[in-house]
Design a protein around this nucleic acid. Structure first.
Length: 606
RNA sequence: GGUCCUAUAGCUCAAUGGAUAGAGCAACAGCCUUCUAAGCUGUAGGUUGCAGGUUCGAGCCCUGCUGGGAUCACCA
């Protein structure tokens, strides 16, 4: 089909030249899909040429249509509606194009480009378990990596684990104070959840202390405003001071603190590993901030020497980005300890040193838009060779109907819980339908997980990443309509057809070639399928799994009509029957591939 | 207040600057002797937040305004 389109472009250039003596670039000739109320599959819009040619749109369209009709072999017919030239190709053209893709097992996979790109995603904190918000970065990052791979890139998936800092110390401290030696084994609680519980415990204690302090302060000084007292108390709560002390001890590698830190992180990693496995994501390289923050300090030191940064009287180090429309930004505290961005500078260098990739994508929530603007700007100023290839794939927050989720307050939708609930819904729905009664327990479990994650991933990925979403836990995620399950179902139906075709020994890959007519629905499917490879590249370049999701949904819906309206095995014409099976096979393969890009498995039966 | 994001059917979302703005959910009405009804068809539902501008053509681009969100920490 590619060739035909190229030919068509060339012929239109020729037509414009011959009829109107008008010169234009081949690539400026583009087509759009013909709207379904008109005949044809490709539409050429002539409005852009009316001015230069000083003719009415219909005249130009007619002229070009006539020219193509007389001078080309591939055109079946054309029609002109208000300046839109709608084109139909001959049946042979379509059959030829279809023959070229039917056996291509790698349809949708672009050739290797030998260009490296890193996708960093997930990037959890080791003080709490993953929640619904984390699922979005995990699914988005995994899908982005898959799409880039399909577009021909060599992809490195990385995970930068935020395993140090005051927030980590908070759960450690609370554990020290209230833990009584509890472990995941002794309590039966998954490690990341156990640590998360102590993070909540810290916050409760902190709040209680603040409340007490406020009362105390105001009783001593009645002039003190509520607000002011809050502010003072929040800075001086004993447990916070202790946490700060612990952070310093950590940076000084006090053995007792290091031991506790390692122990608790190990629990969290075991928990994360399990969750990652369940939700089906993986990584090529883990970075730990505890290992990179020191090199970040080095970067700051060098930047100070090269006068890209400056030091204030108290010793803190800053960069001035006011010329770039940003602010002054702190890079190193007065006491010499590092802040968030410090380690990011070190990690960025390390990543590039290890992989030398030309593009580096950070899949991180939009609350950090400013942070990444600053980070990229700094790296640009420092003249890093990789600075131009940095991209922040920013996604919107997921909120509850009641507002934002807060880990500290325990108002989060936990990732493990949510997946478990979805599996139950899947099990229940499947039982009601009773289609897999011959499955053994392991097969059933596998299917429930596939359906649950399919629904969840599709739900989160079909929306434009930029947009925030509201998730209502009261309404469980749908299994009907525009859902992951619908796509899986369409795929499973196609698998049933292919099983039957095999059983009947129909050579559908070749038998359709004697066909001499194509039904409108078949044509729509064919022309839709041809768009897939370009769409994959487009989705990868724009880092938008939503494009894939929308495309496969449209394709599945079209197939749904085809499936309902045209019979396959009852079709007496052998070529037609084979053709419909072949179309089914190809649609099935595209659905499977598209779902795979989204990280969704496509079961053969459900 | 500065900067950034965002606003489309009751709800959740689509729509490379192109034709009469489309899906799903929810509601209503049909369709299983057939290849999986987790499906298919139909009905109903819209001043694309508001006001200007750019052009052959604007939901999309520009300006202003309004509503929602994020951020501007010696938090991460």
């Amino acid at each position: 089909m590619e060739n035909i389109i190229k030919q068509l472009q060339a012929d239109i250039v020729l037509a414009l030249k011959k009829i109107y003596n008008f010169d234009c670039e081949l690539n400026s000739i583009s087509f759009q899909n013909t709207r379904k109320e008109f005949e044809g599959t490709h539409t050429f819009v002539v409005f852009p040429y009316t001015k230069a040619l000083r003719l009415k749109p219909d005249q130009i369209a007619q002229g070009i249509g006539q020219f193509l009709h007389e001078n080309t072999e591939y055109l079946a017919s054309y029609n002109v509606v208000q300046g839109f030239l709608n084109l139909s190709f001959k049946v042979e053209v379509w059959l030829q194009a279809f023959s070229e893709i039917i056996d291509n097992e790698h349809f949708g996979q672009a050739p290797k480009q030998h260009r490296k790109v890193m996708v960093e995603y997930s990037s959890p904190n080791t003080n709490k378990p993953l929640h619904l918000g984390h699922l979005r970065t995990n699914f988005l990052g995994f899908a982005a990596a898959n799409m880039l791979e399909a577009a021909g890139y060599d992809v490195i998936k990385s995970n930068v684990v935020n395993d140090r800092g005051i927030h980590i110390c908070k759960s450690m401290l609370a554990y020290q104070l209230f833990g009584h030696g509890e472990t995941p084994e002794s309590s039966g609680i998954k490690g990341d959840h156990l640590v998360g519980d102590y993070y909540v415990k810290y916050d409760q204690t902190f709040k209680a202390q603040v409340k007490e302090l406020v009362a105390d302060l105001r009783s001593k000084n009645t002039d003190l405003s509520e607000e002011k007292a809050q502010e003072m108390a929040a800075k001086n709560a004993p447990i916070l001071l202790e946490a700060k002390k612990m952070l310093q001890d950590w940076e000084n590698a006090v053995p007792e603190v290091m031991h506790l830190w390692k122990r608790m992180n190990a629990w969290v990693y075991a928990g994360f590993e399990k969750t990652y496995q369940t939700i089906g994501v993986n990584f090529d390289r883990f970075y730990y901030e505890s290992e990179t923050y020191l090199s970040g300090k080095e970067v700051v030191k060098k930047g100070l020497e090269s006068q890209h940064f400056f030091q204030k009287e108290d010793g803190s180090v800053w960069i001035d980005l006011t010329e770039e429309g940003l602010d002054q930004k702190l890079l190193l505290r007065a006491d010499g300890t590092s802040v968030y961005i410090t380690q990011d500078l070190g990690t960025a260098d390390l990543k590039y040193k290890e992989y030398g990739m030309e593009k580096s994508v950070y899949v991180v929530g939009n609350e950090q838009d400013y942070h990444f603007q600053v980070l990229f700007q700094i790296l640009k100023k420092l003249g890093r060779p990789y600075a131009e290839g940095l991209f922040h794939l920013s996604y919107g927050m997921i909120e509850l109907p009641s507002g934002r989720m807060k880990s500290r307050e325990g108002t989060v939708v936990d990732a493990d819980d949510l997946v478990a609930e979805m599996k139950q819904v899947a099990a229940q729905r499947t039982a009601e339908l009773g289609k897999i009664e011959d499955f053994d327990d392991a097969q059933q479990e596998k299917l429930y997980a596939q359906l649950a994650l399919g629904a969840l991933k599709y739900y989160l990925l079909k929306v434009d990443p930029k947009k925030k979403m509201i998730f209502n836990p009261e309404e469980s995620i749908d299994f009907q309509g525009n859902t992951g399950v619908y796509l899986q179902y369409t795929h499973a139906k196609i698998c049933a057809i292919l099983r039957k075709a095999k059983q009947l020994d129909i050579q559908y890959r070749t038998d359709f070639k004697t066909l001499n007519s194509i039904e409108p629905l078949e044509l729509e499917l064919l022309s839709g399928m041809m768009l897939y490879p370009n769409l994959v590249t487009e989705a990868a370049e724009s880092y938008s799994p939503a494009l894939i999701a929308n495309y496969i949904y449209d394709l599945a819906r079209l197939y749904g009509r085809f499936y309902a309206e045209l019979s396959i095995f009852a079709e007496p014409n052998r070529a037609k029957c084979a053709f419909r099976i072949a179309i089914s096979a190809k649609v099935g393969q595209i659905l499977q591939h598209g779902l795979m890009l989204l990280g969704i498995e496509a079961p053969e039966r459900m």
